[in-house]
Nucleic acid binder design. Sequence first.
DNA 1: CTTGATGCAAATGGTTTGCATGTTT
DNA 2: AAACATGCAAACCATTTGCATCAAG
Lengths: 149, 149
Amino acid sequence: MADAGEAPELDELVEQLRATGARVTSARRLVLRELLASGDEHPTAEELAQRIQRTDPEVHVSTVYRTLESVEQAGLVVRAGLGDGPTTYHLAHDRHHHARCDGCGAVIHLDDRAFATVVRRLERDHGFLAAPRHLTVQGRCRGCRATSG
Amino acid sequence: MADAGEAPELDELVEQLRATGARVTSARRLVLRELLASGDEHPTAEELAQRIQRTDPEVHVSTVYRTLESVEQAGLVVRAGLGDGPTTYHLAHDRHHHARCDGCGAVIHLDDRAFATVVRRLERDHGFLAAPRHLTVQGRCRGCRATSG
DNA sequence: CTTGATGCAAATGGTTTGCATGTTT
DNA sequence: AAACATGCAAACCATTTGCATCAAG
């Protein structure tokens, strides 16, 4: 099972992309580079495009969208578009989930392990192979439980 | 803790809505009635509008959207973003989660209980009181595991 | 040289909004 | 009467697509 290991090199990602049969163009390289540079930010397609355009103004947003689709299918990138606002993206090696406080917005990171029970249940009861990618659990953090009703 | 109990009566819902200060109009009553009638379907705003229009053709989609916003804020309705496609809605008393197949889009219902481990962990490790509202776990259903890679 | 990728512009689709009018409280 | 909700059309925004051109394999 793919896990949250070290950050990969650009060349690694490029190679994995090529392995799926997709062609490696300069635009695609730039998208991957920008995703690497984004760390644990979760940029939108538009944001990626703008940053990339500082290097190559020719790269169009639609290309970024198409590239994101390819790299997502290659399993390199995860779509974290939840809640409101546009979809955000991050590299797949950085797999994590969130618990977010309804009160103050504080975010706690959760690893896959927390969802083991759910995964097992789905397998046992439905033959469903769960691969949770990006879940956000709502609730109230310690501080907000004390403070407000 | 609010839980998935009996289906409420229309009048109950109406009363709860009124209690938040919102005005109760015939359109809003129709939205709630339609949500009740939808059982565990998850209608989109558009679908709700169409069904409502069989009773009152004057009711406009934008009204349905505005109503959904009000009833969501009143805590009567939960927004269920199932990945792609338009947002779907269901009554809050019917709390559950989903597993959705990446391949064919099939949806499996999961009850709160499946997430007990996550909830316990968050409480123990972070004093975080989780109240998951609507999570969608991705994966592959039995059929799609067999069929495709 | 073949196939897939790109730029651009235009289309799409879900959702939101401005405004004049109608309805609830 | 005052505040809020509605219908409608138009705006909006993220994303997708058709097509001619270009570059990677």
